[in-house]
């Protein structure tokens, strides 16, 4: 039923936006943005369930908690960046949207820095020492 609600909301918003766009493009954009925010916030609650499952899996299998934390951060960054970028893209600012996505990518890569450094150190340690 929730799926029907969301689709209905989306269709309603689309029709309204099509009607309003002729007269006031500004309000059409605002309507689109708020519909997006509403659906996003609605779905965040659902994502929580998936995350709980992930946490459960991680705890039971004994993965270091730092792995899970990093992965959750990556998911969060990806979602927020994507959301912001799409709203901006709707407003027609393609360049700013791509910058937001770029920032998201950079932050995800920064997450990888400690892991990469540990692996590199290990590999260097594995190599025979000079001789």
């Amino acid at each position: 039923m929730e799926m029907i609600q969301i689709v209905g909301l989306g269709l309603l918003a689309t029709v309204l936006i099509l009607v309003v766009r002729e007269q006031k493009p500004m309000f059409a954009f605002l309507l689109a943005a708020f519909t997006g925010i509403f659906i996003f916030l609605y779905l965040i609650g659902k994502i929580e369930i998936v995350i709980t499952v992930l946490e459960d899996l991680a705890v039971r299998s004994g993965i270091p908690s730092i792995y899970l934390k990093t992965i959750l951060k990556i998911i969060g960054i990806a979602y927020i960046a994507e959301f912001g970028a799409q709203i901006v893209r709707d407003a027609g600012q393609e360049s700013i949207a791509s910058k937001i996505e770029f920032a998201g990518k950079i932050f995800i890569l920064v997450m990888a820095v400690p892991i990469i450094s540990v692996i590199v150190e290990t590999v260097i340690g594995l190599l025979p020492n000079g001789s």
Partner: peptide, 11 residues
């Protein structure tokens, strides 16, 4: 985003 996340997860 998936490409970047895949890198971290692969690590």
């Amino acid at each position: 985003m998936q490409r970047y996340a895949r890198l971290v997860v692969g690590l």
